[in-house]
Design a protein around this nucleic acid. Sequence first.
DNA 1: TTGTAAGCGTTATCAG
DNA 2: CTGATAACGCTTACAA
Lengths: 344, 344
Amino acid sequence: MKQPKRATIYDIAKKLNLNPSSVSRALNHSRNISTATRELILKTAEELNYKANSMASNLRKGHNRTIGVVVPRINQNFFANVIAGIEEITYQQGYNLIICQSNELAAREIKCINTLVNQDVSCIIISVSADFESDDHLKNIKEQGISLIQFDRVADELDTFKVTNDNESASREAVEHLIAEGYKRIALLEGPQNLNIFRQRKAGYLKALRKNGMPVIPELIVENAWTKDLGAIATRKLLGLPNPPDAIFASTSDFAALGVLEVANEMNISVPRDLGICGYSNESFTEITTPMITTIDQHSTLMGKTIAQLYFQELDSVTNGRKDKVVNIQPELIIRKSTLKSKI
Amino acid sequence: MKQPKRATIYDIAKKLNLNPSSVSRALNHSRNISTATRELILKTAEELNYKANSMASNLRKGHNRTIGVVVPRINQNFFANVIAGIEEITYQQGYNLIICQSNELAAREIKCINTLVNQDVSCIIISVSADFESDDHLKNIKEQGISLIQFDRVADELDTFKVTNDNESASREAVEHLIAEGYKRIALLEGPQNLNIFRQRKAGYLKALRKNGMPVIPELIVENAWTKDLGAIATRKLLGLPNPPDAIFASTSDFAALGVLEVANEMNISVPRDLGICGYSNESFTEITTPMITTIDQHSTLMGKTIAQLYFQELDSVTNGRKDKVVNIQPELIIRKSTLKSKI
DNA sequence: TTGTAAGCGTTATCAG
DNA sequence: CTGATAACGCTTACAA
C-alpha cells in the first residue's frame, strides 16, 4: 500500500527553478504569465503526471463547484431521470455531482446531508425520504450558507427553491378520464400522507369525484399501498368487497398499478372492461404489460434540468433581480388500454 | 448570497479561551482530554452550529474516506443494484460514495475519473463505457496511488482487482437450454465486441453449439444489437431470412430480448412454440411480459457487496498476506416460459 | 512577468 | 491534560 507521493505544484516549481505561484498561474490559465513559461510548466506538469488537489484548492478558494443530490433511491426511473436532467446542465457548467441515496430512511438522509455539508458543497438538491417527519436537517443546510433546492417530495413550509409536479391537477385529470370512460366506483390507492405529493394526489381524486357529483366512498380508499405487493394486497381486499370498485387509481406508483393488474389477471377479471387501472410515473414497464397501463408522466428529465437551471439562475440573481422560487411542472396523462373501456 | 461565515474550531476555542487543538481533540473523541472540557466543547460546538470542514481535515490527514463509482448509467437495474450492494458495505464502514455516470462515453468517463482523482478518493470502482478503447486513464488511477476495482465490463489486460460474471459459462448454459428444448437454429444478438463481456457471451454461444454438434451459421449472428430498437430491427431481419431462426438469444440485454418479443407478437409468431427467446440481466420487466422471458441473473447486489469487501480486504492486506485479485461470480439461468417449447 | 508570504480549517508533533 | 506551532497543497494580494 505504500504509494509514491503525488506531484504537487511545488515539485514542478522546484524542477523548473520557478515559484509555486507561477505554476499555479500557469495551471489556472491566468493571463499574468508569459506563454513561454506557461508552456514549460504545462509540459513538465504532464511529465510529472501532476494532478490537481481539489481539496486544497477548494479549501483555499472557499468554494466548491460541487452539487449534492439526495434521493430515496437511484434505481427508480423517476429519480434516475431527474438526476440525468440535472447532470446535463451541471456538466456543461463544469460542476460535479455527488449522488446519495437515503433508502427512504430519514436517518440515512440526515447522514447524507451531513456529509455533503461537511464537504461544503455549493448546493444540495433533495427529494425527501418516505418517513420524513421534521425539516430541521433541511433548515440547517440553509444556515450553513448552502443553497437548497427541493423537488418532487418537498417540505412545504420551508422557504426554499422548489420544483414540483402539479400532482393535484394531474390526479384530477386522471380520475376525470376514468369517469368519462364510464367507471362508476373508482378506488384510490394512496401513499403515506406525511408526504405532500400523496396528499395532493388524494386531493385531486376527491376533487374530481365531487366536481362530477360522485360520492366519496371511504371503503374504496386504501392507505399506504405504494409498492407492487401492497398494491396487490389492496386489490384483493377491494375486489373482495360486496360492492367492489370498477376502477382503481394507483396514485402512488406504477408499481402499485402493476400489482393491481397482476391480481386482476390472476382472478380473470377483464381489464379494462371490468376493471380500469391507472398508475403514476410512466415507468417504462407500463408500455409492455398486457394491457398497457394508463399512467401519468412527470417529465422527470425536464424536472432535473429545471432544478439545475434554477441553481445557476440563483447564482446570477444579483444581476437578475427577479426569480421564481417555485416551479410547478404540469405532468401529462398518458392514456393507454387499461382504462379505455369505451373503446371496446 | 452573502452568508454568515461558518463556525470553525477556532471560533469555539476563542469563545472558551481554549486552544484550537483541544477543540480538535474533543471533536475527534481523542482520549487526551478531560471529560469536563470535552463536554464543554461539544456543547458550544452545538450552540455555534459547528460543522466540520472535511476538505480541511482530509487535506491535513492526507486521506479521504470516500469511494468513487463510475458506471455507464445509473438507471439500469444492473448498475443500480451493484451500487446498492456497494453502498450497503461502505456505509457500515463510514465511507462515502460519489457516483458518476459516463453515459457510455469514454470522454465523459475520463472526465469523471479526473474529478475523482482530483478529489483524491481512496478508491475508484468502475465499469467501463461502451466505446472503451484505451485503458490509459485507468492506468493513471493506479499511478496516482488510488485503488482501482473494475467490475463487469473490465479492461482485461490491466492488473487490478476485478469482479466479473462468468459470462461465457452462463451463455453456454443458456444456449444449451435452448438446444435441450429442441430449438435447432439459434440466432445470437451480440454486443460491441470491444467489450470483453460481449466477447465472452459470444464465446459461450459458440461453445454450446460446437459441443452439441450444431453448425455455426454466420447469418444468424447479428452484431451490435443491444438496445430494444436494435433488437427489433435485428429480429425483423432474421425472421425475414429464407431460413429463419427458431430461437434468438439476446446476449446483450433483456431490452434487446424485449425488442425481439415485440416483433414476434407483431408478426403473430408464437413464443415459445415457433420462436424461443432468451435475454440477459434479469431486468424486472422480464417477469411481466407475455410470455415471461427466460434470462440470466447476474447477482448484481452480491456483486456490489463483493466489490466493497474486496476493497476493505485490500486495506487489511498487510496483515492478511493473501488475497484474490479476481472474483468471478456465477450468474444464474432463470428459465421462464419464453423458451419452454417442450412443455407446450 | 515573476517572487514573497499569508492563509483556507484541520491535525500532528512536541513542549510544558 | 493542554498549548504552541508547523504543515497539508493551493491561491492571491502585494511587492519587486
